[in-house]
Deep mutational scan, measured.
Amino acid sequence: GTVKVQGITIKVPNPDKAYKIAKKLAKKYNLTVTRKGNTIKVE
C-alpha cells in the first residue's frame, strides 16, 4: 500500500500497521487520516 503525507507518498507493506501509525501521528499533529484500501492519506 501507500501512505500519503502532505503530498509525499510512501509505499508500505502493511497498510493496517501503517494506518495505526498514521492515526497516532495525525492525533499528535492534528491531521486527518483517510484510508482507501492500501492507500493511506494524511492531510
Rank of each mutant, 00 (worst) to 15 (best):
K24Q: 12
P15D: 03
Y29M: 06
K20T: 09
D16T: 09
T32N: 10
A26D: 00
K17Q: 13
Y19L: 06
N30G: 13
Q6F: 15
K36P: 02
G37S: 03
Q6S: 13
Q6D: 11
A18Y: 09
N14T: 03
A26N: 02
A22P: 00
Y19W: 14
K36S: 08
P15H: 05
I10E: 01
R35N: 06
G1H: 06
N14G: 02
K23E: 07
Y19H: 04
T32Q: 08
A18L: 12
T2M: 13
V12F: 09
Y19S: 03
K41S: 12
L31Q: 01
Y29H: 04
V42T: 03
K20S: 10
N38F: 04
Y19M: 06
I8V: 09
V5K: 05
V12P: 03
A22W: 15
I21L: 09
K41Y: 15
K20V: 07
N14L: 11
I8A: 03
V5L: 12
P13T: 12
N30K: 10
I10G: 01
Y19T: 00
K17L: 14
K27E: 10
K41F: 15
K4S: 13
I8E: 00
K23N: 07
K23Q: 11
K41H: 13
I21A: 05
K41E: 14
E43A: 10
K28C: 15
K24H: 12
N38G: 02
K17T: 10
N38Q: 06
N38H: 05
D16H: 10
I40D: 02
Y29T: 02
Y19P: 00
V3S: 03
L31M: 09
V5M: 09
A26F: 13
G7D: 06
N14K: 03
A22L: 15
Q6N: 14
K23D: 02
E43N: 10
G37Q: 03
V3E: 05
P15S: 08
K24A: 14
G1M: 12
L25P: 00
L31T: 01
V3Q: 05
T9D: 03
E43H: 12
I40F: 09
T32W: 06
L25T: 00
T34F: 03
T32L: 11
I40C: 15
V3T: 03
